[in-house]
Design a protein around this nucleic acid. Structure first.
Lengths: 204, 204
DNA sequence: ATTATCTATAGATCTATAGATAATGC
DNA sequence: ATTATCTATAGATCTATAGATAATGC
């Protein structure tokens, strides 16, 4: 009875499989942000990852499970970038965050950008797991923005962080939706200026 | 040569066809906001409208044409509501607009709500026609919000309207995406309070 | 006579699975 | 021996079209 629960033999290396798994998730995370959660199919994704469709379900129970992991991975990208900047010589300032978010390069490259502005309404229609992962990330992002604000107390900082976060996501969503380039730029610029002014007023 | 360009005989009544056309567009407008632009097919839409799939292409050149008309129609809904309130006894105030947008009923009923918070990223991936219609509506909405603000000059009002609009759309998008009900409510409430405070400061 | 709508279907997707093949661990 | 990946395909979509039917205008 000793070895009943012991793992079986491993077949392909587990490290190799984990790498493949991550490659699929990373790719899906990019393509979903570019094309929407329904914009790319499993066959095409696997092909882009250098694999074939049949192997997919050894990695994910269902397409929805991939969506969840891909959305989570998309959030992780920004998180890592911010934390890298945090521990670097020049830590992120509120102003820097605003500028890194509200610019044309971010607008024109949703695949490597913020998952909220690229996918929020589709996430709202996704399953509970995906929305739970999203809740956690919204909480983290609010907390992070709050630490960058020079507000009197924590409650004020949190409240201002929520406004900032909402304005960032909304501005990027609108800037991408309009076809009028001048209007799109105006939205990014105006909201950026407002938010920065808003933060500096707290310091004076 | 006299009658070459004259219209042919009419078959079914044109008024009847126009009514049917509008019924399809209205329904699509609702269902798209609820399920996303790819969330419902032509066959199901036509069935819900009491018709069958074959008749669709006598009304629309392609699915994309319906998407464009449906998105436009969704914008029209809010516009009409606001203008009705405008000419009524109690005209819309900025505060009223904020409260009518950032509430749980709106959050839980995307089908009859704002098309931006329900569809912005999907519109961003749509064809030029749909995005042109969207640009026009963004311009209108900015203008409308600006008129509700008691700002010193027009430029300031416009800039504040852009921030308001972005914050509204972003807050609703996030409030719908998270599964945490308390967090969702906090976002709606906090952004609403901030925006209202923001406007009242202009008056003092 | 004209045409909106209907039935039926072509052709192209898509998710998921079955069973064969091949690469690695014990 | 185990299992990741492959080929092939079932079954369910989806958009768009062809051709028949029926409702109305001249």
């Amino acid at each position: 009875m000793q070895f009943i629960l012991e793992e079986g033999h491993t077949g392909y290396s587990k490290a190799q499989k984990a790498k493949t798994h991550e490659r699929i998730v990373k790719l899906a995370s990019k393509r979903f942000r570019e094309e929407g959660l329904a914009g790319i199919g499993i066959a095409e994704l696997m092909k882009e990852a250098g694999l074939t469709v049949g192997g997919f379900y050894k990695h994910f129970d269902s397409r929805d499970h991939l969506v969840c992991e891909a959305v989570d991975s998309a959030f992780g990208g920004w998180k890592r970038r911010v934390e890298a900047a945090k521990s670097s010589a020049s830590p992120v300032s509120y102003e820097k965050l605003i500028d890194e978010y509200l610019n044309e390069a971010h607008r024109d490259n949703p695949g490597t950008g913020c998952a909220f502005s690229a996918l929020a309404p589709e996430i709202a229609r996704s399953d509970t797991r995906t929305r739970a992962v999203t809740s956690e990330q919204v909480r983290n992002d609010i907390q992070l923005i709050a630490t960058l604000l020079p507000s009197e107390d924590k409650r004020t900082a949190r409240s201002q962080a929520i406004l900032t976060f909402s304005a960032l996501v909304g501005a990027m969503s609108l800037a991408r939706a309009v076809s009028d380039e001048a209007l799109s730029r105006e939205i990014l610029k105006t909201v950026g200026e407002h938010l920065k002014r808003f933060a500096s007023k707290q310091q004076g």
